[in-house]
Every structure is written in C-alpha cells, then in structure tokens.
Simulated scan of single mutants.
Amino acid sequence: MAESKAPPTRLILVSGPDAAPDLAPRLAAACAAGDVAAVILHFAPADERSLVNRVKALAPAAQAVGAAVVVACAGEGIDLVSVAARGGADGIHAEGGDLAALRERLRDGRILGTGGLAARHDAMEAGEAGVDYVLFGDLPDTAPRTVQERAEWWAEIFETPCVALARSLDAVADLAATGAEFVALDAALWDGPDGAATVAAAQARLTDGV
C-alpha cells in the first residue's frame, strides 16, 4: 500500500506588536494572496474593551477568506479567552501561564496556541497541556538554523502541529521541508504596501519548494 501523502504546508501571518485597525485592508489582501490558514494578531496591552474592539475591527478581514484569527497580548491581567469570545476571534496565542487551565476554558472549539519556547522541554510541556500548535522562532535573536532544527525535531516525534517562523522569504522552503505543518511569516515581511506580493512569493516557495 502506498504511503499517504502529507498535507501541504500552509502559511500563517504574524502581526506586529500593535495590530491597529488600519491593518484591515492590508490583512485582507495578504490573506487572499496565498493559502493562509491563520493570522496571529499581537496587541499591545490595553483594557479588554479596547482589545475586543480591535479584534472586531480586524478579524473579519481574515475570516472572510477562510483564515482563522488568533489573538495574543502580553499584558498582565488580560483575559484573552474573554477577549477572543467577545471579539469574534477563533482562539488565543498564549506565552507562559497555565496552558492546561486555558485549554479547559477553550472547550468550545477555539484554538489554543503557544510560543516563546526557549527549550525543548517547554515545548513538550505545552504539548502535554493540550495546545493546538507550538510556534518556534519567535524569540529574539533565534538563529534560522535553530528554528529549522527545532521544527524538524518536533515534526518527527509529535502529533501536535508546529509552526516555524520565517523572517525571510529565503527561509520558507527550508522550514517547510522540516515537516512543519505551518510556516509563519514575520510581520516585517508581509505587513506593508507589497504584503500581498510577499505572501504570494512565499506561497510559491511552498508550492515549488524553492
């Protein structure tokens, strides 16, 4: 019997640290330019009402073309689960904290992802907590080769999907070759006037492997 072919690697877009409402048209164009599975929206700390309004302003731009929207915010005392539910997001991206408790609160089908994983052990603990994906490469000064090695290690051993963050278009094909289910594009790549073209170019690298 022939081995089943692995599904193609898909793209995820990661926003900058303060995803403002005027991002919406750029986000819509970028999501439409490739096979974008999800968008991770990073917000600067704010009160929950403001965060909910930001999610409402941005999420439809991605969701309209089939991309899930996951919300991240590093502020203290912010209930991201509530923000996601009230704003209409599809889940949250949490770094640190009690991931198992968050998983319990997200039994309604919403996504729980995590990043900021400094060691392999951290990633393994996140997987045991029931996250839907682990993200590698988002820590400052992480070498591209380290991201590639970490994604390859994870994809070979674990069933939980992994996301490998690309900070250049040249990295996209190499990261996909690790077996990672998703390659994420850093905001510096796609969030600009030529963002849609950049996403299209990344998609071509996934499709053609170059």
Rank of each mutant, 00 (worst) to 15 (best):
L99M: 02
T146G: 01
A24Q: 09
E95W: 00
G96Y: 09
S50V: 15
P8K: 05
H93L: 01
P161F: 05
M1D: 02
R145F: 10
L13C: 03
A200H: 10
Q148A: 02
L23C: 04
R86W: 05
A20Q: 15
S168L: 00
V83W: 12
A61N: 11
D170N: 09
W190L: 01
A67N: 07
D132F: 03
E125V: 15
D18A: 13
P17R: 13
A62L: 09
A6T: 14
A200G: 15
A59H: 11
V71L: 01
P25H: 11
L80M: 09
A126Q: 04
P17Q: 11
R205I: 11
A155H: 05
A24I: 13
A180S: 12
A202G: 08
F182Q: 03
R54L: 02
A129R: 08
K56Q: 15
L112H: 12
R26I: 02
L99V: 06
G34W: 06
A202Q: 05
E181L: 04
G209Y: 13
R205D: 02
A202I: 10
V210G: 06
Q63Y: 11
A196W: 07
L13T: 09
V83A: 02
N53S: 13
A123H: 01
E104H: 05
T146D: 12
I40V: 15
P193E: 14
V172C: 01
L139C: 00
R107H: 09
W153V: 03
G127S: 01
E125L: 08
A201Q: 12
R107V: 10
T114Y: 11
E48C: 06
A32D: 14
I111F: 11
A28Y: 10
C162Y: 05
D35A: 14
A119M: 02
D170I: 10
A62N: 14
